Simulated assay, not measured.
Amino acid sequence: MSYGISAALQAAVFGALSEDAAVASLSGGAVHDALPPGPMPPLYVVLGPERVRDASDKTHDGAVHDFTVTIVSQGAGFGAAKALAAAVSDRLSGADLVLSRGRLVALRFLRARASRRDGGREIELWFRALVDAETP
């Protein structure tokens, strides 16, 4: 096992979310893998932390990546944030993403946490990706 597939997985997740019509419509195209400088839009998506552990066996090198996608809203209610979170979850849950290195075996939703943050709202979605180091 290595951490080598992490960047390929992140790029595939970012691409999938950036190119999804529902996510783009609800977020106004504000999907980020790192927050840009300056004022932020009222509703956006940002890729977040990940935890990775070995999932290798005798025949394959693999890893389990638990990662977050966070929806941030400056609005007073959760409605818009929850609609965007649902679109993100719909796009990623069970997705068959193509990685530039290795291959995605499975991708599923794990859990979510909705909270108030700095006068706005935040929904943190956790996903689990199982990756194999071998490219098909």
Rank of each mutant, 00 (worst) to 15 (best):
M1P: 09
S2Y: 12
Y3H: 06
G4Q: 14
G4W: 03
I5Q: 10
I5T: 15
S6K: 07
S6Y: 11
A7H: 08
A7K: 05
A8E: 07
A8Y: 07
A8D: 12
Q10D: 12
Q10C: 05
Q10P: 02
Q10L: 09
A11K: 15
V13H: 13
G15V: 01
G15D: 03
G15Q: 06
A16Q: 13
L17F: 06
S18E: 14
A21M: 08
A22V: 13
V23R: 06
S25Y: 06
G29P: 00
V31H: 08
V31F: 02
V31R: 02
H32Q: 12
H32D: 11
H32I: 00
D33A: 13
D33C: 05
P36V: 04
P36L: 08
P36Y: 13
P36T: 05
P36I: 05
P37E: 14
P37L: 09
G38N: 09
G38T: 03
P39L: 11
M40R: 14
P41Q: 06
L43W: 10
L43F: 06
Y44H: 03
V46P: 04
G48W: 12
G48V: 02
P49D: 15
R51Q: 12
R51M: 01
R51V: 01
V52K: 10
D54Q: 00
A55N: 15
A55L: 12
S56E: 12
S56L: 10
K58L: 12
K58G: 08
T59G: 12
T59I: 07
T59N: 15
T59E: 15
H60S: 13
H60E: 13
D61P: 01
G62N: 09
G62W: 09
A63Y: 02
V64M: 00
H65D: 00
H65C: 01
D66H: 09
T68V: 13
T70K: 09
T70W: 04
I71F: 10
V72F: 12
Q74N: 05
G75I: 01
G75C: 00
G77S: 12
G79T: 10
A80T: 04
A80I: 04
A83V: 02
A83R: 03
L84G: 05
A85L: 11
A85F: 07
A85W: 07
A86H: 10
A86N: 08
A87S: 00
V88E: 00
D90A: 15
D90P: 03
R91S: 11
A95M: 09
L97M: 09
L97C: 10
V98K: 07
L99D: 08
L99R: 11
S100I: 02
G102C: 07
R103C: 08
R103T: 06
L104C: 09
L104W: 06
V105Y: 02
L107D: 02
R108G: 08
R108Q: 12
R108H: 05
F109R: 15
F109H: 08
L110F: 04
L110S: 11
R111C: 04
R111K: 14
A112I: 03
R113G: 05
R113C: 01
A114P: 08
R117D: 11
D118M: 13
G119F: 08
G119Q: 14
G119W: 10
G120W: 01
G120A: 04
E122K: 13
W126A: 15
F127E: 00
A129P: 01
L130Y: 03
V131A: 08
A133G: 09
T135D: 12
T135P: 03
P136E: 10
P136Y: 07
P136N: 12
P136M: 10
P136S: 10
